[in-house]
Structure formats: structure tokens, C-alpha cells
């Protein structure tokens, strides 16, 4: 399956990119995160305990299931308002 991953704010800066297309068998967002963490180095920022995530532009938890074509987002706690 292919999915699109996007990063924001401090994560976007740490990773040096605002997103990427990923190919693989990802049952959940957590599996996407683990695949990214396995790259090591700067991707370890995604191990932060307070990481937030979204699937198709709705906030969700890491155990959220994924399907082909989903948009997944990882970002630090939001600070608007």
C-alpha cells in the first residue's frame, strides 16, 4: 500500500522535509512510526512521548488503522490560540 506522510513545525524542521510518500504494509499509524524510527538519527524525534498524529486530517491515536491512500501526519503538541 502507499500512503502519504506529512510533518509539521519542529518535526518538519528536525527531519528537513515536510512530507514523503511511503510504500509498505502498514496496519496502523504506529507501524508507520516504527518504520520511520528504524531509520534512526534525526527520525528519533518521532519517539517523543507527547507526539500527536492525525489520519486524513482528523486527530487520532497511534493504533488507528490505515488504508491505501491515507494521509498520515505527525507533529508536536499544538500551540495555537
Amino acid at each position: 500500500m502507499s500512503i502519504n506522510v506529512v510533518y509539521f513545525a519542529r518535526y518538519r524542521e528536525a527531519l528537513g522535509r515536510d512530507g514523503e510518500a511511503l510504500e509498505g504494509a502498514f496496519a496502523t499509524l504506529e507501524q508507520v512510526r516504527q518504520a520511520l524510527l528504524a531509520r534512526g538519527g534525526k527520525y528519533e524525534v518521532l519517539a517523543e512521548q507527547n507526539l500527536m498524529c492525525a489520519r486524513n486530517q482528523d486527530l487520532c491515536k497511534l493504533d488507528e488503522p490505515l488504508v491505501e491512500g491515507d494521509e498520515v501526519a505527525f507533529f508536536p503538541p499544538v500551540t495555537g490560540g
Binding site: F8, A9, R10, A54, L59, A73, F75, P76, P77, V78, T79, G80, G81
Partner: peptide, 9 residues
């Protein structure tokens, strides 16, 4: 909004 809307300062 402070905890759920995707804004970053």
C-alpha cells in the same frame, strides 16, 4: 482550540 487545532507558534 488550544489542544486540538493544528497551529504551532
Amino acid at each position: 482550540l488550544k489542544t486540538r487545532a493544528p497551529f504551532w507558534k
